[in-house]
Amino acid sequence: MKIVVNDEVQDVSATTLATLLDELGYGGARVATALNGDFVPVAQRIQAPLHEGVKVEIVAPMQGG
């Protein structure tokens, strides 16, 4: 299934946001996620299904002013 992760098209086998993070190698990382622009809390990732073409955002702490 092709989805868009942080603006890059990726072909993945994961069917939920939780398994996607494992598949892409984010396991254990301190990140926050959104699907199609909507925030998905950690506890809901396992129930957040992925669909063809869905836009996933994965963000982490970064320098800021």
Binding site: N6, I58, V59, A60, M62, G64
Partner: peptide, 11 residues
């Protein structure tokens, strides 16, 4: 200190 969020690369 102020901080922000940006896209994270798994690598």
């Amino acid at each position: 200190v102020t901080v922000s969020l940006r896209r994270e690369s798994a690598g």
